[in-house]
Amino acid sequence: HNLTITQGKLFFHYNPKLCLSEIHKMEEVSGTKGRQERNDIALKTNGDQASCENELLKFSYIRTSFDKILLRWEPYWPPDFRDLLGFMLFYKEAPYQNVTEFDGQDACGSNSWTVVDIDPPLRSNDPKSQNHPGWLMRGLKPWTQYAIFVKTLVTFSDERRTYGAKSDIIYVQTDATNPSVPLDPISVSNSSSQIILKWKPPSDPNGNITHYLVFWERQAEDSELFELDYCLKGLKLPSRTWSPPFESEDSQKHNQSEYEDSAGECCSCPKTDSQILKELEESSFRKTFEDYLHNVVFVPRKTSSGTGAEDPRPSRKRRSLGDVGNVTVAVPTVAAFPNTSSTSVPTSPEEHRPFEKVVNKESLVISGLRHFTGYRIELQACNQDTPEERCSVAAYVSARTMPEAKADDIVGPVTHEIFENNVVHLMWQEPKEPNGLIVLYEVSYRRYGDEELHLCVSRKHFALERGCRLRGLSPGNYSVRIRATSLAGNGSWTEPTYFYVTDYLDVPSNIA
């Protein structure tokens, strides 16, 4: 807008934040220059609390790290170098490059900038070799853009010569660093050979998330399962459950009422301010606690030095998902009996873990797994792929695949051998790939016309006998059925096997 004052003059007093240069501009645009008398524009009460600059400061050096910015700028000295009290560095987070010096300023003089007072450097006698002032900004957020400017702080001049310097606002972004852990990993099994893994992005990506790394490792069953005799009275049979499938998407929606109208769909109840505040506090606490764990609990591995020492970490090797089922080394339970199943799973520490690289999504279907087997899954978020990966501390989750139908069934015939004193040795093959492992066998036998009897055969007993022995049988026709019990439950009964026990007292003698 054009402003013209045809008559009258300007009068400025007691404006401590208004620089004289701005008042002189007002004289020019209003056409009143030359009308004012000496005392109409006070030299001592206008701009006496402001830094009124008329020179431009330029930054000469900028260096960044993930949490620091090192700045240096060209030296500046007023005509009387004693008038320079120091520099004021202003900075704040700036997602967009549209910041002005006066953003967030209120009537009390406060604003949204963080201000650092910096002492002037030592003055050199040689004007050509003056030290460049600077400042190291610490405690910054990774991968965050900051708006920065600097200006001088000078003393009051009796001659009211307006001098000083100020830089333009520059924008500097800190470097990326390792992201925080992925949030809320959930693993479920939808079949006997697959596990579905879902997660949420890290709360602090500290860069642009480029991919996720998912490692999985087959877990050995508890050692007590191999040692305890679950045929003993009072000892509860062990059981394991597989990871249940995901709930429906509708039930997972946030901010939804727990109660549904019987007449149909209901609208979600909005969260109160107290609920939102509580969630923010919980989120802040979780982030602080995660940072504490990362800094205190997890110790970084030592990389190899120039002395030739090897990095103890196993090298990563990509495998196809079809090879995942046989990740671990199978060892027989008892070496003397080769027909026992290889369900003991000690994992070799030198073995390469299978892994998958996930790009542009937060889910993965891990296939080719062994049925009813526990897996430990390790999830890392990465925001750099080359020249070397920059990934987060791992988040861990466990899951067990679903049982395989008929995996616990005894394959092959049940054979028998009759000894003296009416002892019958029953023999059968253990299931080759049971659900988890076989903890015991149930032997059901009966003599024709009598009630059915049951015998429990422990895992250890089966390994020693290759089956079991029935003792003290009365003469007669017998039928026997056997079924295995694994961590997933009972298998199917075998087809009945028949044998006849004679009275050993009636056996004919070869003595003449």
Rank of each mutant, 00 (worst) to 15 (best):
D204A: 13
D204P: 02
I209P: 02
T210V: 10
V214M: 15
F215E: 04
W216D: 02
E217Y: 14
E224W: 13
C231N: 01
C231R: 01
L232S: 08
G234Y: 06
L235K: 04
K236D: 02
F246E: 10
S248C: 06
E249P: 03
Q252P: 09
Y259W: 11
A263Y: 07
C266I: 09
C266T: 11
C267T: 02
S268W: 04
S268G: 10
P270W: 03
K271D: 02
T272S: 11
E279T: 05
E282V: 12
S283F: 12
R286L: 03
K287I: 02
T288L: 12
F289H: 03
D291T: 02
L293S: 03
V297P: 02
V299R: 13
T303Q: 08
S304N: 14
A309Q: 12
D311Q: 14
P314K: 11
R319K: 09
G325Q: 14
N326K: 15
V327G: 09
A330S: 15
V331F: 13
V334G: 13
A336H: 10
N339V: 10
T343I: 07
E350Q: 09
H352T: 04
H352Y: 13
H352R: 09
F355R: 07
N360G: 06
E362F: 05
I366Q: 05
G368F: 14
L369R: 05
L369A: 10
R370T: 14
I377P: 01
N383L: 08
Q384F: 06
R390V: 08
V393M: 11
S398L: 05
D408G: 03
D408S: 07
G412E: 05
V414I: 13
H416R: 10
E417P: 06
E417F: 10
E420Y: 14
N422Y: 15
L426A: 00
M427D: 03
Q429G: 09
P431A: 04
L437R: 04
V439W: 12
R446S: 00
G449P: 12
E452A: 12
V457E: 04
S458P: 07
K460H: 08
H461C: 12
A463Q: 12
A463C: 08
R466I: 07
C468S: 10
L473P: 03
P475Q: 12
S479M: 04
V480Y: 08
V480A: 09
T485A: 12
L487R: 10
L487I: 08
A488D: 15
G489D: 14
G489V: 04
S492R: 13
S492C: 15
Y498L: 05
F499N: 01
V501K: 08
L505N: 08
V507Y: 04
